[in-house]
Nucleic acid binder design. Structure first.
Length: 516
RNA sequence: GGCUGGGUAGCUCAGCUGGUUAGAGCACGGCACUCAUAAUGCCGGGGUCGGCGGUUCAAGUCCGCCCCCAGCUACCA
């Protein structure tokens, strides 16, 4: 089964103790672009997102809200499903860890790990705060002047507590993990994260506590139901629950191993160390790639709830429009790096890249065609060197963008498309079709055909990033739905095809002036 | 402290294995054009490439030392 056609991409499942913010929107957006691109490129795509609904924090938050845990998670999980619609994401399914099939998958995986001899009963020990009902590691605590140890973050007194816990023999997997990283250089991206993970594993691994007895909202350990599975074992398993695990005859099993787990840089260890170890121990193939993206700051400031500067994606979309926000998030920052969000930068991108460069290119081209070429695709005559140069660049774009998308280099993919857009704007000025209208109409028509064709190719590639806007432009070029996949990339516009009236797709954003 | 990555025009960044006058986008100034969303195109100003020393015919690009920034250095997710 060498070159399979399936493509499985996942977001992390989002922890439902919080409302969605721009970080969630960003991660899912990146996956959405991958999924849409691969579908257009003819792949059999499965795109999964969902919510992580277990754990002590949820149990506590639900109690505080006066709700049963399930009722609480039903409610908060919904806000993540609402975001899917708001951001025009295209997941094939939305998984929840409270689904019965997920319990079955987790318990099956657990049993497999037990059978393999990788799980044993031991004792978990740590600094426990009764008030917070939470364990803290040594570094999260400090001893005060009264010689009592307290949690640094909450100030609550902590005591050394030991409870029985099952452990996963992670320590036994360091060498095999290092070998796996070595043999699969693309497993962790970007490169800097790969270095971090490798150096972490090289430093030696301790066994991992994978069950708790201090709370009950979670998946019971098979055969010892006082124990609840450690949240990460529970959460990570969602990726294979979706494919039917442990039933490998499930039709969705063909998607495993996942082609890409998209994660934020904070949870890379779980995905790049624990997860492959769990899977290898259970004789399941590890995923092919984990990409850890960076964080956003807000106008140069670190984002935090206490600062109150959390960015609400819904507000952004309502203010600037969906596609401009999608474009900005993936264009502004080299994917993988941290980036700064600022209104000025967003408006700059919207006006310079979308309204002025791309939108205006479409508008100036299409309105000439509408006014002077009889509202149909113009006749294509003999091509000059200038025509061929532009068309060749547009033709080469698919290969270039495909390469960048394979690396999740969204900003580079967009830059490449926008270089062709800039070339097209230069071409319009150089050819001056408005002057040709007075001297050589057939030549003018050829120029307009070259422009329309260039816009078509660029726009096909814009689709994964800005689906609605791209669709509007392709509508204006009368490209039928079945010719919008990349299989039709070389199917050029047919002269004579009737075209609808052009309409601007990316209006400039003008800031509301304060009332004078 | 250790490890990793980075410090290049006002801002954001490109600059493979060292080689003509160090590039792009945005911002700024001037000019041109008028098809277009006061959009587009052309030209221009502006950088001792973090600092010091070294290797070399030649270093932003290699070596050494130093300064500054970020991330990682395990079980809240």
């Amino acid at each position: 089964m060498p070159d399979r056609n399936s493509y499985y991409v996942t977001t992390p499942i989002y922890y439902v103790n919080d409302v969605p913010h721009v970080g969630h929107a960003y991660t899912t957006l990146a996956c959405d672009v991958m999924a849409r691109f691969m579908r257009l490129d003819g792949r059999d795509v499965h795109f999964l997102t969902g919510t992580d609904e277990h754990g002590q924090k949820i149990e506590t938050a639900a109690a505080a809200a006066g709700l049963a845990p399930q009722a609480f998670t039903d409610k908060v999980s919904q806000s993540f499903r609402d975001l899917v619609a708001k951001m025009n994401y295209s997941p094939d399914n939305f998984i929840r860890t409270t689904e019965p099939r997920h319990y079955a998958a987790c318990q099956a995986l657990w049993q497999k790990l037990v059978d393999a001899g990788d799980i044993y009963l031991g004792k978990y020990a740590g600094w426990y705060s009764v008030r917070d009902e939470t364990y803290f590691v040594e570094g999260e605590t400090e001893v005060g002047p009264d010689k009592k140890r307290r949690a640094t973050s909450t100030g609550a007194e902590v005591t050394w507590v030991e409870e029985p816990s099952y452990f996963f023999k992670l320590s036994a997997w360091a060498d095999r993990l290092l070998e796996f990283y070595e043999k699969n250089p693309r497993f962790i991206a970007p490169e800097s994260r790969r270095n971090e993970v490798i150096s972490f594993v090289k430093g030696g691994l301790q066994d991992l506590s994978v069950s708790r007895t201090s709370f009950s909202w979670g998946i019971p350990v098979p055969g010892d139901e006082k124990h609840i599975m450690y949240v990460w074992l529970d959460a990570l398993t969602n990726y294979i629950t979706e494919c039917g695990y442990p039933d490998t005859s499930n039709p969705l099993w063909k998607y495993w191993p996942a082609d890409l787990h998209m994660v934020g840089k904070d949870i890379i260890r779980f995905h790049c160390v624990f997860w492959p170890a769990f899977l290898m121990a259970a004789s399941v193939a590890p995923p092919k790639r984990v990409f850890a993206h960076g964080w956003w700051t807000n106008e140069g400031q670190k984002i935090s709830k206490s600062l109150g500067n959390v960015i609400d994606p819904v507000e952004l979309v309502d203010t600037y429009g969906l596609d401009p926000v999608r474009y900005f998030l993936l264009r502004e920052v080299p994917f993988g790096n941290d980036g700064d969000f600022s209104r000025r930068a967003l408006i700059g991108r919207l006006n310079a890249d979308l309204a002025n460069a791309y939108g205006n290119l479409c508008q100036r081209s299409l309105s000439i065609i509408a006014k002077s070429c009889g509202e149909k695709v113009p006749e294509k005559g003999a091509l000059t060197d200038a025509d061929t140069a532009l068309l060749d660049r547009a033709r080469g774009l698919l290969g270039v963008v495909r390469g960048e998308i394979d690396d999740q280099a969204f900003h580079k993919a967009l830059t490449a498309i926008w270089e062709v857009i800039a070339d097209a704007n230069r071409y319009v000025d150089a050819q001056a079709p408005w002057a040709l209208a007075k001297t050589d109409v057939p030549r003018r028509d050829t120029v307009m055909w070259v422009l329309a064709e260039t816009i078509r190719r660029a726009t096909l590639l814009v689709q994964p990033f800005m689906p609605d806007s791209a669709a509007k432009i392709l509508d204006q070029l009368a490209v039928p739905a079945e010719d919008r996949a990349f299989a039709a990339f070389d199917k050029e516009l047919a002269p004579g095809t009737a075209l609808p009236k052009p309409q601007g797709v990316f209006p400039r954003f003008v800031e509301a002036k304060p009332a004078a």
